[in-house]
Amino acid sequence: MEAQLLRRPAASCKCLLKPSSSTTSASLPITAIRTKLTASRHRRALNVPPHPSMLLTPSSSADHILFNPPSSAPSVYHTPFKFLPKSDPRRRANLPSLFASSTTINYNPDSTSSSSSTTDLPPVVLEAELKQKTHHLTKEDVEEMRRLREQDPVANTVQNLANKFRCSKLFVMMCCQAPREYRDQKQAQMEAIKNRWGPRRSAAREDRKRRLDMLFRGEL
């Protein structure tokens, strides 16, 4: 049994995993794709060798620690290193983490800290989150924005104003509100659209909302 396990080193199973080409980012780390054409070949390929710590090598002593936890979601009771308060003894005891999280100290002299951090990390989900906040709008800009929206809500849509003032749509919506008639008109249009929905579509929409509420309550 042991010899059979050792005959198949862990590296040989790498043929199973190929980076996916469907997504835009090239550096997507792990995306498993079925490459075997028949079920038996696929099953054979999926016969993954055990974790190295499970194997008894001659070098390891008779009793050693097996650390091979099953893959599972991390517990929220495990506080990440960054969230530990300054006074916590775990923070002082874990110096490597302290240095690794530091952005000022760089142990790799070849590359700058910023480039290494961008290359090592997985791709971002929302590109907008990487943008630095500029806070470039002044009080006069906001008043101008409100005036434009009040004047002609059809031409000055939220999107147009966001493009014009180089801010987010959320900020535009926080600043100004369309005139009452325009809002009522839009509301009526939306009601007409909703009335055209059949039972399936409205039920699906309700379910979606319910799922979102469940997610925020932590039930999903």
């Binding site: 469907s22 997504t23 780390p29 792990i30 990390l121 989900v125 989150e129 990487l130």
Partner: peptide, 10 residues
Amino acid sequence: VARLLSETGR
């Protein structure tokens, strides 16, 4: 920043 660690079945 939200980053995509892994995905399956897109």
